[in-house]
Design a binder for these strands. Structure first.
Ligand SMILES: NC(=O)c1ccc[n+]([C@@H]2O[C@H](COP(=O)([O-])OP(=O)(O)OC[C@H]3O[C@@H](n4cnc5c(N)ncnc54)[C@H](O)[C@@H]3O)[C@@H](O)[C@H]2O)c1
Ligand SMILES: NC(=O)c1ccc[n+]([C@@H]2O[C@H](COP(=O)([O-])OP(=O)(O)OC[C@H]3O[C@@H](n4cnc5c(N)ncnc54)[C@H](O)[C@@H]3O)[C@@H](O)[C@H]2O)c1
Lengths: 230, 230
DNA sequence: AGGCGCTTGTGAAGACGTGCACAAATCGCG
DNA sequence: CGCGATTTGTGCACGTCTTCACAAGCGCCT
């Protein structure tokens, strides 16, 4: 389930603040989900909560980390050390959440050799050597969209089976390779859509305006955590 | 629908390459979705495709941009001009996709006054003045998680009703305020989960291993665009 | 030892999203 | 003018996700 990482983060917070057990309601609150949903998710893991008490925080962390495959620190290669790539390379969230940047790659010879956060940028053509030295599980693409497909092909060619793509384009990959996309513009446009919807609703509370303004109510947008109480 | 921005991007690509009309199948391919799903989405907009021909690219772009509320160029404030904030401030994807950065804000006095991409960083306490000058629709939070809730409160206080949050934490906001979250670590962990699952499957093709390894098959992860053919 | 309050785990119902398959509609061509 | 090729729009069925509600279980307090 895609919610497991969110639970994990909430659990780590709880562990740091000294909690040894959590109720499903407490954890659900911290993760911003329904408590029944959380219990159902956790029961899928075969997890052991104790009725009347709750879940053991430490045990649950271990369980979720195991299921997510975080018991081994996975190696990540970052391709494209530009504007965004720099920020990602300097991000400590990689290391603290179970990942390790194995290499920084770029096609720009000007960048090759530059050191960022203790890592030296290598040329993209060195990817095969990098992959030969250690098993790369995940590739992160932070190149312009025009180069993304080519980079993806190169990653797949050296055995990468999971790709996180920041370029605004769809990638074609063979079966068995997972791709997840993060697109800032899409997020903003979804928010803009909600803005537009809210504006229309407040402007015309009762009757509908133009044919287009009066959308057949309630277009759903998944993954939005709208209005989590105060 | 959350897929509209994806269609829009694909349509812009098509328009640039000279296409005047698209079939649902062609557009669906470019956007990485099922053609029936696309047609159903588009029919929700009350859109006019012509049977036997397809959709008019220009008209469809206008329609989707209208529905997404992109006819007006919305003002965005970016709070937290650190590692990630710098990258976002220098990103041209804002302007090219219908948004305009109205202000860069940070709490660090060292950063205040710095110019990035033609914009001068202001202090977070100047937020009320910024909001007074023009209507801010969207706030982007790129501060550490510890500060995110406070920043969100400040944004809400000046009338921001949509927030894009890059900090790894859940935000509490009043009803009517939309929050979307982008968390790099969560994306990586979902990929890691798939890696783990794939590894288990290939290692034990037939019988299940430990109780935990043999998950009750097929945990679903939404939004993943797995295996889009070659 | 027994009862009471609290919490988990889950059955069932409903909402929702997805994809197939096909009828209706439009265009181009003979 | 009519026919066939093509493509949209959608009814329908299916699977999934979500949520409520409640019985079963556990620990604590008396
Ligand atoms: N900057 C942001 O805040 C931001 C936000 C969201 C999405 N994005 C997307 O992320 C991508 C990168 O953005 P950016 O601002 O860092 O762009 P950028 O131009 O600053 O950096 C791109 C880097 O990729 C390298 N590159 C180009 N082709 C390559 C190849 N074939 N192999 C390896 N490296 C190659 C370039 O040398 C450059 O260093 C873009 O697709 C952009 O749309 C950026
Ligand atoms: N760097 C990345 O690649 C990356 C990727 C994903 C998520 N994130 C998340 O984005 C956030 C920012 O990351 P970063 O690497 O840029 O961190 P950073 O420490 O480099 O930058 C944080 C900035 O926020 C400012 N700030 C702190 N408190 C503030 C407040 N109350 N009001 C206004 N500004 C304030 C700081 O002065 C600093 O400039 C973090 O939550 C991080 O987890 C970062």
């Amino acid at each position: 389930m895609a919610r497991l990482p969110e639970y994990l983060r909430a659990l780590h917070n709880l562990a740091e603040t000294g909690h040894e057990t959590v109720s499903s309601e407490g954890l659900a609150n911290a993760a911003g989900v329904n408590s029944a949903k959380l219990r159902k998710d956790l029961s899928q893991l075969g997890s052991y909560g104790t009725r009347g008490v709750g879940y053991d925080v430490g045990l649950l962390i271990d369980q979720i980390e195991y299921v997510l495959g975080l018991t081994q620190r996975r190696a990540v290669v970052l391709v494209g050390v530009g504007n965004l790539g720099h920020a990602l390379a300097g991000y400590d969230g990689f290391a603290s959440r179970g990942f390790r940047i194995a290499a920084l790659l770029d096609a720009d010879q000007e960048l090759v050799g530059e050191e960022i956060n203790g890592l030296v940028v290598q040329h993209i053509d060195d990817l095969p050597q990098v992959a030969a030295e250690e098993s790369i599980a995940i590739g992160v693409i932070a190149t312009p969209a025009a180069a993304a497909q080519r980079v993806a092909d190169q990653l797949v060619a050296v055995g990468v089976t999971s790709i996180l793509n920041f370029a605004p384009c769809v990638l074609s990959v063979p079966e068995g390779v997972d791709v997840r996309k993060v697109d800032l513009a899409i997020e903003l446009q979804i928010l803009s859509f909600h803005e537009h919807r809210k504006a229309s609703l407040t402007a015309l509370p009762a009757a509908g305006g133009s044919a287009l303004t009066a959308l057949p109510g309630g277009l759903a947008v998944t993954e939005s955590q709208e209005a989590i109480g105060t």
